[in-house]
Design a protein around this nucleic acid. Structure first.
Length: 864
RNA sequence: GCCGCCGUAGCUCAGUGGUAGAGCGCAUCCUUGGUAAGGCUGAGGUCGGCAGUUCAAUCCUGCCCGGCGGCACCA
């Protein structure tokens, strides 16, 4: 018996796959195509278990679809621009470009070790001049179509690092790196007009039926479309200067206009600011209101406060009805118009506010079954359906009809119009960073902002760029900025902002169709390969990346660079990789590698491997450096081989759930790999003289064949349904069956049945442990390599038993069993049942009321 | 607060309107020329709780409890 040695076997098969160009994607129009893609990694230089899981999942699909006859595209690239490279430059004085490409080289080697069925000829990095140059080309096209614009915008400015910070880089109002208090600054920023596609982005979610509902809901909430109308409230007395037109409010509940109690404006509303200029108490209130708004959670619990401005406005449906105007802290300036009318009876926020300041509460929607004479609103606003009352002209209508009628009246009066508003904002893509895609524009004193002509692209980073200081190295460079205006030829300066890296990742999947094309996207190739049939990645990208990619796809489709309007037909979001945490008595985190866990009966104890100091076993948490609960993939590969690692991450949890790494688990997978090999090793090398197992079938052989065909069916269905762990569980069971099945020397039928089983097994396990599968396949004389072999087919007739064992229940409790031919009719089963002495003994003294026979499943006797 | 997911063996998880399963762990035994290993056998489960539908519920329905995730004054 030869022991299985992954260290020799695994590299050997990877070389053979390479040699055969086994994973090259070819647009073969005679076969159905399948595009499987995992979210491409940031090249940190180090593979972690999350990557292993992510890419193993995609690899299962890629190998499975290939075996099923699809023409498969499974590419790999690098999301290579971004802050970490510049941080490395600042910390270690290295060149971001060199640092990034070094990391890519290291990670590529590690990824290749995973044995992924990837077409490496299509690899690219977003920091390749070739890639971002093409990005600049289509970015200019979007500009020409009005989808790109510049606007003054408030940003978080770190005065020490001289840079703009993203919201998540601001911690407690200070820069995460410098620790300096962050300033709000107004800067001209580049924006992409994603809001122009807001409706499509919501509506098209409907058709994405192979996306998780959770992600679709999150995107829908993020876009936050709401339908309502704008209404003008004119001032009753003299209007404040500049606001003679009144206050425009936005509402989704025009049906409740007759329940209006007051008009409220946000503390940031221009009118509020104007009032504050001449009213110190209003100014003090606004300052107070702004102070409270620190964190999201605080906002929720913050008390509603308001300030009565003394101004009053007229009700749009009744000029004699005057409403006070309040400034209130719960009104947001950046939603709708920054002003509302309040209907306390039917809005909880308004009600809280009205109760606090003693403002009127008048119900106008009557809940079903309530009496208008007695219905009253307590401390809970009524937001449900009902009939409108107390509302001349709307009375009796239901809520939806009343909304429509109210909007009609408002529009007829010229006091407003129906409107749809969104929570979604335009996408700010400016980054004051050098290590990103330069925005291809110049600023000319005469001509303004001018796009760089196509034949002058790409705009690249200067070769002698000096990183390693704070701020934007492009801005600081002595000459790079200086250029001439493409329009007038006069002196001009280059734009020094670069693009958000989310732009880079918004179209890479399309570039993979032909990464060497002259145009950004090779349309013919993209028409063949797109959309991505299965996209796989972490749920943390549920909104931003996936929304941006959908938007850019639509924009590029309108540019006629793409035919699809949705990039990802199927989306799968995998769970995180977690691990137990360990802490010393002093609270210090300890790496798993330094801990020894001892099992004593049902309790587990842990101690430092060196010294034996007891260690506290903490919660299971996402692997992270800070908690030191990471496990390095390369160390696992070294000890157990790649296949065992792949098998373990695929086998232990459903892919969408969090996965708990444990050393016991990977050891179990390793043992399974060895048991599989043993089973193949015990089979005659080079295969057998084939004898059709269907001839002279014995019961033992037939049973084994049944198990084989059932396993093929079950594993196939499990992979189709993304339940890889179930599929692997079936293979574990199947191996147990094979081990238990007798081997009788000189029984050719049995041997043939076993051979059939092993031929299937090698192919079934190939998506999970591809190297092992090849070794096994070769040993038993399989033709060619497994990667070239078709997926095994099952014979439906063999997945069913000829004789069924039916449990027999008496009054719902199991009392015995009988055997009946498969498909036996109830009458036949009853006959067998009543002939069975054990069963009849059970029925002694009872009267049979009813016999329920469920074909091939069970029998239940109802008796008294 | 709202929405979603989850609760099955000590642990991680399959599964099904009809006999409760796998891996790991645990126990017993065997092997000691696969040996910082291998094998046999076994114990262990009111399938989160309560009600309902059904001949029959771990599975369907409702309510409740617990865990996780997302959203959160969006008018």
């Amino acid at each position: 018996m030869a022991r299985y040695n992954p260290k020799e076997t695994e590299p050997k098969w990877r070389e053979r796959w390479d040699g055969a160009n086994a994973f090259r994607a070819e647009a073969d129009r005679s076969r159905p195509k399948y595009y499987v893609l995992e979210m491409f990694p940031y090249p940190s230089g180090r593979l972690h278990m999350g990557h292993v899981r992510n890419y193993a999942l995609g690899d299962v699909i890629a190998r499975f679809k290939r075996a099923r006859g699809f023409s498969v595209l499974h590419p790999m690239g690098w999301d290579a621009f971004g802050l970490p490279a510049e941080n490395a430059a600042m910390e270690r004085g290295v060149d971001p470009k060199a640092w990034t490409y070094d990391n890519i080289a290291r990670m590529r080697a590690e990824l290749k070790e995973l044995g992924l069925a990837i077409d490496w000829e299509r690899e690219f990095a977003t920091c390749d001049v070739d890639y971002y140059g093409k990005q600049q080309a289509w970015f200019i096209e979007l500009f020409e179509r009005g989808l790109v614009y510049r606007k003054e915008s408030v940003v978080n400015w770190d005065p020490v690092d001289q840079t703009v910070l993203a919201n998540e880089q601001v911690v407690d109002g200070k820069g995460w790196r410098s620790g300096a208090p962050v300033e709000k600054r107004k800067l001209a920023q580049w924006f992409l007009k994603i809001t122009q596609y807001a409706d499509q982005l919501v509506d098209d979610l409907q058709a994405l039926d192979r996306w998780p509902d959770k992600v679709r809901t999150m995107q829908e909430n993020w876009i936050g479309r709401s339908k309502g109308c704008r209404v003008r409230f004119r001032f009753a007395g003299e209007a404040p200067a500049g606001h003679e037109a009144g206050i425009e409010v936005y509402t989704t509940r025009p049906d409740t206009l007759y329940g209006a109690s007051f008009v409220g404006i946000a503390p940031d509303h221009p009118l509020a600011e104007q009032i504050a200029a001449s009213d110190p108490r209003a100014a003090a209130f606004i300052a107070e209101a702004r102070k409270g708004a620190v964190s999201e959670a605080d906002i929720e619990t913050a008390e509603k406060i308001g300030y009565d401005t003394g101004f009053t406005v007229k009700h749009p449906f009744d000029p004699n009805w005057e409403l006070p105007v309040w400034i209130a802290n719960f009104i947001l300036m950046d939603y709708g118009t920054g002003a509302i009318f309040a209907c306390p009876a039917h809005d909880q926020r308004d009600l809280d506010f009205a109760r606090k300041y003693g403002l009127p509460v008048k119900p106008v929607v009557l809940p079903p079954g309530e009496d208008p004479a007695t219905f009253d609103v307590g401390d809970e606003a009524y937001v449900g359906p009902g009939a409108i009352y107390n509302s001349p002209g709307l009375d009796g209508l239901d809520v939806e009809a009343a909304k429509a009628r109210a909007v009609e009246r408002i529009e007829a009066a010229g006091e407003g119009q129906g409107a749809t508003v969104y929570r979604l904002r335009d996408w700010g893509v400016s980054r004051q960073r050098a290590w990103g895609c330069p925005i291809p524009f110049v600023h000319c004193g005469k001509c303004g902002v001018v796009a760089v002509p196509r034949d002058q692209l790409p705009i690249t980073h200067p070769a002698d760029i000096e990183f390693g200081k704070s701020g934007n190295a492009l801005e600081r460079h002595p000459t790079w900025k200086q250029t001439t205006c493409p329009t007038c030829g006069g002196p001009a300066t280059r734009e020094t902002d670069t693009l958000d890296t989310f732009v880079d990742s918004s179209w890479y999947f399309a570039r993979f169709a032909n990464p060497h094309a002259e145009e950004p996207i090779d349309k013919a190739a993209a028409d063949y390969w797109l959309p991505v049939d299965q996209y796989i990645g972490g749920v943390e990208h549920a909104v931003l990346h996936l929304l941006y990619a959908r938007f850019i796809t639509k924009a590029l489709a309108d540019e006629e660079r793409l035919s699809v309007r949705e990039p990802f037909a199927g989306l799968f979001t995998q769970g995180m990789v977690t691990h137990e945490t360990y802490r010393r008595q002093n609270g210090e985190w300890v790496e798993p590698g330094q801990v020894e866990v001892v099992v004593e009966g049902k309790t587990r104890r842990a101690a430092l491997a060196e010294g034996g100091e007891p260690v506290v076993i903490g919660d299971v948490e996402k692997m992270s450096k800070s908690k030191k609960n990471t496990v390095a993939p390369e160390e696992i590969f070294e000890v157990y081989g790649v296949d065992a690692a792949r098998l373990f991450v695929l086998s232990d949890s459903p892919p969408e759930r969090d996965f708990q790494w444990s050393s016991a688990g990977v050891q179990g997978a390793w043992r399974f790999v060895n048991r599989v090999w043993d089973e193949f090793d015990a089979h005659p090398a080079g295969g057998i003289d084939w004898k059709d197992p269907q001839e002279d079938e014995t019961d033992i052989a037939r049973e084994l064949r049944r198990q084989t065909h059932r396993t093929i069916k079950a594993v196939t269905e499990a992979i189709e349904a993304f339940r890889f762990n179930s599929g692997i569980a079936r293979l574990y069971e199947f191996l147990n069956v094979l081990k238990a099945a007798p081997v009788i020397d000189g029984d050719p039928v049995l041997l043939a049945a076993r051979h059939e089983a092993l031929m299937a097994f090698a192919r079934l396990i190939a998506p999970f442990t591809p190297h092992l599968a090849e070794e096994c396949w070769a040993h038993i004389g399989g033709e060619g390599m497994v990667v070239e072999a078709p997926w095994p087919e099952f014979d439906p007739a063999l997945t069913e038993d000829a004789v069924k064992v039916l449990p027999v229940q008496v009054n719902g409790k199991r009392r015995g069993e009988i055997s009946a031919p498969a498909g036996a009719e109830p009458a036949e089963v009853e006959k067998i049942l009543l002939a069975d002495p054990e069963i009849t003994a059970r029925l002694e003294g009872l009267t049979i009321r009813k016999i329920i026979v469920v074909k091939d499943r069970i029998v239940n006797i109802v008796a008294a």
